[in-house]
Structures are given as C-alpha cells and as structure tokens.
C-alpha cells in the first residue's frame, strides 16, 4: 500500500495527515468525525471476532452456567489442546495446502499461457473462443456440480488430490484477468523481440511474463484464498478422512445432537481453522493489497 501511495501522492509526505488524494488537507473537524465514525465501525467489525476468540478461551462447563464468564478470568487453552489431539488435523492442513497450492500454481500456469495467447497472438476462431471463455464466467460452480461429480466418479478421481484440484482449474476468471493484463503491455516490446527472430514462447517467457508479476500475485492470492475456503466440492469429493480439507474436517468433528457442553470447543475450532489464513494475510498484507489494487484498475 505504502509504495502505491507514494507513487501518486501529490507531494512527499511532510506530516502524518498529508498525502490523501481525496482532497483532505490537514485535519479538520470533518476529518475527525469521519475518523471517529470509521473507528467505531471497525470496532463493530471486530466485535464478533473478539467474542469468538474469548469464548474459545473459556472452559466449556463455565460457559454453561453463565455467558458472563466470558468477561473475566480464568481463561484456558485446553480447547486448543483438544483440537491438536485430534490426530488428523495436521493431515487436513496438509491437504488444504496441497489443494490450494496446487490449484494456485496450476491456475497461474494455464491462465498466463492462455492470457498471452488471447491478448498477443492471432489464430483462427480466436475471438469466438474468447467470447465463449468469457461466457464461462457466468457459469456458477453449482450449475455443473452434479455433472462434474458424475464425470469424476467415472474417471475414479474422487478422494484424490487431482480430483480436488482440477475443477478449480476450469474457472475462466484467471484467463480473463491475464488477457487484460497482457493487452495492456505495449506491443513494441515483443515486436522488437520478434524482429530478432525470437520464438513466441521465448518472448512470452523472457520478455512479457516478468511484467505480469502484479497480476500473477493478485490471481495467485485470490485462487489460494478461494481454494482454502472452498466447502462444497471437497465435501462431496474428498469424502475419506485422510482426504478431508481443513474446512470439511473441522466441520466433521462437530458432534451430533448429544453435545451440549462444547461451545468453547466449537469456537476454538473456528479460530483454529481461521487463524492460519489470517496470519498469512497479515504477513503478506502489503503484497495482497498492492496486488488487488494493481490489477483492479486496469
């Protein structure tokens, strides 16, 4: 974020309140009111998360007596220890990583190649094909779910990593994004290379691909997040315990009706499943934000 802002800020930052292109010069009462309101809204945003974290740190039995127990000690990490004792949980994390990672890499490869092809090269039926791919954007995953499930049954791909990864590769969003991006790169670049008799692939690989890094980052992050959070397809395709992704696995440990004392435990599961991705987000925040911004405006 900061790098972007400095590129466009009217003047180098001279004081903290400066540099806002939205026309705020200095701090006025109006700015303060807006800031106050935004902070209030942020607190409202955070409240549910904090509530859940607080619940997860409480003894289940204490919560049964009164919810007000949330607001005072003692707190405990016992619920988290119980999750870790579920032997499969690390396997599920690994599965989620393999699926989300595989899908991300695969999407980047396929989308970059296709994006380059559609944007920079000419071949018969190119425009027709591109329109068909664009129409694919309107196909909701659920509309092809049933047929896809039958197809994968026939190919014996359920309960395998390819089975969990492949459906995501057919989403046209990446191609759409990369095509846009490749089109925006000045044509002179590869024309010069073409005159040197460089092959099409070499131009793609050496000249253009490096220029698309911001778009790669955006697409990669969206793909990874989407795959990590997917629920429907893993639920019906990865049906063996060893092939559960974290989302499905965590859901499966929730007990049948008999459970009456597990509120804290349930909440710790929510935190546990959400935490890795939140930490990842905080860690890569700068890149994510830059990437989202970078690709969006084009």
């Amino acid at each position: 974020m900061s790098s972007m802002t400095s590129a466009h800020a009217p003047t180098p930052a001279s004081d903290v309140g400066r540099g806002a292109p939205s026309g705020m010069v200095g701090r006025t009462t109006g700015d303060r009111i807006i800031l106050g309101l935004t902070i209030a809204l942020a607190i409202v945003m955070m409240a549910p998360l904090l509530w859940v974290v607080a619940l997860s740190l409480k003894d289940n039995k204490e919560l049964m007596v009164s919810m007000n127990a949330v607001f005072h000690a003692p707190y405990t990490v016992q619920n988290y220890i119980n999750i870790l004792a579920t032997s499969s949980v690390f396997r599920w994390i690994l599965n989620s990583l393999v699926v989300a990672g595989g899908l991300t890499v695969g999407t980047l490869v396929l989308s970059s190649l296709a994006g380059y092809g559609f944007a920079r090269l000419n071949f018969p039926f190119r425009n027709v094909l591109f329109v068909i791919v664009l129409m694919g954007l309107a196909v909701p995953e659920q509309a092809v779910l049933i047929a896809r499930h039958q197809l994968f049954s026939w190919l014996k791909l359920h309960n395998t990593y390819p089975g969990l990864i492949l459906p995501g590769l057919s989403a046209p969003f990446g191609v759409f994004l990369m095509t846009q991006y490749f089109r925006a790169i000045p044509k002179e670049l590869d024309e010069a290379a073409l005159l040197d008799n460089a092959s099409r692939f070499k131009i793609f690989w050496k000249v253009l691909l490096p220029l698309t890094l911001p778009a790669q980052a955006t697409l990669g992050i969206f793909t990874f997040l989407g795959a990590w959070n997917d629920y429907l397809w893993p639920l019906i395709s990865g049906t063996k315990k060893e092939m559960y992704t974290l989302t499905v696995g965590i859901a499966s440990t929730q007990t049948n009706f008999a459970q009456s004392e597990g509120l804290g435990f349930l909440m710790s599961q929510a935190v546990f499943a959400g935490a890795p991705i939140l930490i990842l987000y905080l860690f890569f925040q700068k890149y994510i934000v830059t990437a989202v911004s970078g690709a969006a405006v084009r």
């Binding site: 499930h149 049954s153 309960n159 395709s237 049906t239 315990k241 499966s252 007990t255």
Partner: peptide, 22 residues
Amino acid sequence: VAVTTVEWPGYDQLTAQFAAGD
C-alpha cells in the same frame, strides 16, 4: 477398523460416495 466421522447426518456425503462407487 478405520473411522471416518461425518457431519450429522452425513447423507449428502454418503449419497455422493455411493454415486462415486466408493
């Protein structure tokens, strides 16, 4: 005996498994 636990009642998943022949 290897146990797989499913979210109650698990019939959506079971149907999907039968359909997948597994």
